[in-house]
Amino acid sequence: MNNDVLVIGGGIAGIQAALDLAEMGVQVHMVEKLPSIGGKMAQLDKTFPTNDCAI
């Protein structure tokens, strides 16, 4: 039995899952295929429905 969690993908979903787990005290390993995390959201200018900046 092991108590670490693997998150595959570092877009907004993976980032949120990893942070929640880490805050619960779980050791997380995040594997992202690109050189940086952020996913598609990092490419967006602003986001609906609030038109806040994406990054």
Partner: peptide
């Protein structure tokens, strides 16, 4: 995003793939 890079309990393996 920054928090993931800094969090002591997150081991970030970017530019990596599950094999």
């Amino acid at each position: 995003m920054l928090d993931v890079g800094r969090h002591p309990r997150i081991n970030l393996l970017a530019y990596s793939e599950v094999e």
